[in-house]
């Protein structure tokens, strides 16, 4: 499984939805992505990649594509097996 797939799974877990629904177009406010779900997504991402995100990144993670940028900052290579 690549890290990108792991990220998609973490989102699906946090949002309680199907991984197929996690696309680049997904943004905060869609498919039940509210503030409570947001913290669950953050926890799932941190767990999946064993990282601890800074508060600015937690607040700034407004879409799936933004999340890809953010996890890359923590040394996650998205196209490599994670």
């Amino acid at each position: 499984m690549t890290s990108l797939e792991k990220l998609r799974l973490a989102f699906a877990e946090g949002l309680g939805t199907d991984p197929a629904e996690i696309t680049d177009a997904l943004a905060y406010g869609n498919i039940g992505w509210d503030s409570v779900a947001h913290m669950a997504v953050v926890a799932a991402i941190e767990q999946a990649f064993d990282i601890m995100m800074e508060t600015d990144d937690v607040i700034g993670m407004s879409s799936f594509s933004k999340a890809k940028e953010i996890v890359s900052k923590y040394g996650v290579a998205l196209n490599v097996a994670g």
């Binding site: 913290m39 953050v42 926890a43 941190e46 767990q47 601890m52 508060t55 937690v58």
Partner: peptide, 9 residues
């Protein structure tokens, strides 16, 4: 803020 995120894991 930070502690709760570590605890939530």
């Amino acid at each position: 803020q930070y502690a709760s995120r570590l605890m939530a894991r």
